[in-house]
Design a protein around this nucleic acid. Sequence first.
DNA 1: TTAATGTATTTTGTATACAAAATACAAATA
DNA 2: TATTTGTATTTTGTATACAAAATACATTAA
Lengths: 207, 207
Amino acid sequence: MIEHQNLSEPIYDRLKEMIVSGELKPGEKIVQEKIAELLGVSRTPLMKALLALENDFLLESIPRRGMYVKTLNDKELYDIYVCREALEGMAARILAESNDSKQIAQLKNCFKSFNSENKINSNAYTKADEAFHSLLIKLTGNAPLDKIYFFGSIYEKVINRGLLRPPEETLKEHHSIIKAIEEGDPYLAEKNAREHIQKSRILLLNK
Amino acid sequence: MIEHQNLSEPIYDRLKEMIVSGELKPGEKIVQEKIAELLGVSRTPLMKALLALENDFLLESIPRRGMYVKTLNDKELYDIYVCREALEGMAARILAESNDSKQIAQLKNCFKSFNSENKINSNAYTKADEAFHSLLIKLTGNAPLDKIYFFGSIYEKVINRGLLRPPEETLKEHHSIIKAIEEGDPYLAEKNAREHIQKSRILLLNK
DNA sequence: TTAATGTATTTTGTATACAAAATACAAATA
DNA sequence: TATTTGTATTTTGTATACAAAATACATTAA
């Protein structure tokens, strides 16, 4: 079955899913031949996908030893939140500066189903949360920013440990970020976005 | 010559140098077989290096067409400076928080040879500048931050267009960043670091 | 002359083959 | 028994082989 598309891409997607879902457990070794056979491909395109996943912080490579599913310790998780704070803060600032009503509508749309409800479905909210934070970055139109913001992949892994804070609490904060963007207040937008991440970050310390 | 070390790493280093130095020109296509032969290796380890370089924003891949040396347009360069502003600002804040005299000494050391001199060697200063900004990130001990901060590789490419601002001007700013860190003032350290990048960023707009 | 078409060549994407390092495990030694 | 040593097996790193897509180029038709 030699059919020249980009095999690496579907492999990458599949493996990412397997890692995030826990099908491949943290610390587990990726034995290339086994995974290749499992996915029905050769080691060559698999290797490409593995390298991409390493760059996403989902795999860890020890030269001459192999690739392992990354186990995020508390320090690393904390450090990722530090990066998120800086990057999402900047993203919020940029969006507030451009103050685009279409963009604001998109941001609002993430949480529209939760506004009127009294009881928030935790699973649906987690998805919305992820979409919102990812959208915040995407809407800036800053390609390098989007490239380095690989934390989305890790997000689900974090969530699997249990939501850090109740939706009722974070929903307010999300809206305050959007509101500052809508008011065209870059300083406040950045401040709100940063404080939002910071609150979760601090919780990670006492875990 | 089959000798199992990590060929990919030296290949990566060599290619990075060739790109940064301009031996490989922006927009130039990387013909795998040619480069492989030039470096005396096969396409397999070369491919690994190419993928890493793509992740560093130094190469651009068009599926089924090939890899090309990235041509940074003004918008992308500007966007990179936006990221730098966020990340280096955060780094300066962190260093100010920990307020470690050893770290501060290291930072000062970057510019020690320029303090007493009246005429600054532009070439040496460029190297010092690069070392300083890279060190700022490294000293935080934040691995994800260091991983996403690939801009150092691009730095020289930018500089090749000509220094954005005279050393006399930026040297002061560098010292003001260090000073704020030394005084343990996270807010000021972040502010100074950000303004430092911002000033260069704004210049990029009028180019 | 210009545009279109078909063929040859080049180049990428993938699979496979093989060498050397790493690992597992059994036998030998203390 | 615990530790070392040697051998077999596994697995990675690299090279090569080959198919299909992309490109170059010449030939033909308008």
